[in-house]
Amino acid sequence: MYRFLLSRRWLVTVLIALLLIPATVRLGFWQLHRHEARVARNELIARSLTAPPVAFDSLTAPGRAVPKDLTWRAVTATGSYDTAHEFVVRKRTDAGGDNIGYFVITPLRLADGQGEVLVNRGWVASGASATVYPDVPAAPAGDVTVTGRMRADETAAGSGIRDRGGLPDRQFNLINSAQQAGRSGAAVLPGYLELTATAPAPASQPELLPEPNHSDIGPHMAYAVQWWLFTAMIPVGVWVLVRREARDRAKEAAEAVVAAGAGPEPVPAA
């Protein structure tokens, strides 16, 4: 009854089904791992943002990258801004994500003499021309204490942003302490501070960056469940197709028997 399963068409169908099962199981686990990574990231951000601020230079040191578990940590630093080496980072969006402009990065010369910290003071709009340095609110003069979020250096590999040269003066594509240390000759600590508050408060400043979203877990768990449901449906679907073909073949065989049993129509007598 099921000899048709040995046909080439059905052997190919079953083979494809057998290959799809481990593939869809793997895709489900891939989405599960993405879900777990998203949850872990959210938990890290939530812990970091609610922890009491610590000194920026207590978490980083020359030649040492910012550890992943310290990103978003609330940090503080005291010193004076090195406005001579201020720069902007191109093609960055505002808090709403609708407008493209620049991040304003101003090095802060630490009062304890441990070096300089890159401070992302916030976002400003693009000017009339991308070749002209934008209008930037002046950094506060004198000693200030800044509070913000610890961030790791941006790299082309990590951000996906192409770090091409030939840009206008004081414009860059990445926030990278090593790059700026080479430019200014100063001892710039790895990582940077994403500003949230300044004391004393300045009269004007760039638009501060919003707190990262750490409540959205994304659709990855739903996608994982969908892949596993699809996995379960593969053998069920194959079995349904097999049963349907077996039933159709049985029906055709029965109709052939009936047709053969009826015999030829009788010839009328002369």
Rank of each mutant, 00 (worst) to 15 (best):
L5G: 10
V14L: 12
L15Q: 00
L18E: 09
L18T: 00
L18K: 00
L20G: 10
A23I: 12
V25N: 00
V25L: 09
R26E: 10
G28F: 08
F29L: 15
W30Q: 12
W30D: 14
Q31E: 00
L32Y: 14
A37M: 03
A40C: 06
L44N: 06
S48E: 09
L49I: 08
T50P: 10
T60F: 05
A61G: 09
V66M: 10
P67Q: 09
K68H: 12
D69W: 05
W72T: 05
A74C: 06
A77S: 03
A77V: 09
T78I: 09
Y81N: 11
E86M: 12
F87Q: 04
F87L: 10
R92C: 02
R92I: 01
R92N: 01
R92K: 12
G101F: 01
G101L: 02
L108H: 05
A111K: 13
G113P: 15
G113V: 14
G113S: 13
Q114T: 15
G115A: 09
E116I: 00
V117Q: 03
N120R: 05
V124N: 04
A128F: 02
P134G: 04
P134N: 03
P140M: 14
P140Y: 06
G142L: 08
V144R: 09
R149G: 03
R151A: 13
D153Q: 10
G158Q: 04
G158R: 03
G158A: 08
S159G: 08
I161M: 06
G165S: 14
G165W: 09
P168R: 07
N176I: 01
A178D: 14
Q179A: 13
G185V: 06
G191W: 03
Y192S: 04
L193E: 00
L195I: 04
L195A: 04
T198S: 15
A199H: 13
A199W: 00
A201T: 15
P202V: 10
S204A: 15
Q205E: 15
P206T: 01
E207Q: 13
L208A: 13
P210Q: 03
P210H: 01
E211I: 07
V225M: 14
L229P: 07
F230E: 03
I234H: 00
G237F: 05
V242E: 11
R244H: 14
R244V: 04
R244F: 12
K251T: 14
A256N: 07
V257F: 15
A259R: 12
A260K: 13
E265S: 12
P268Q: 01
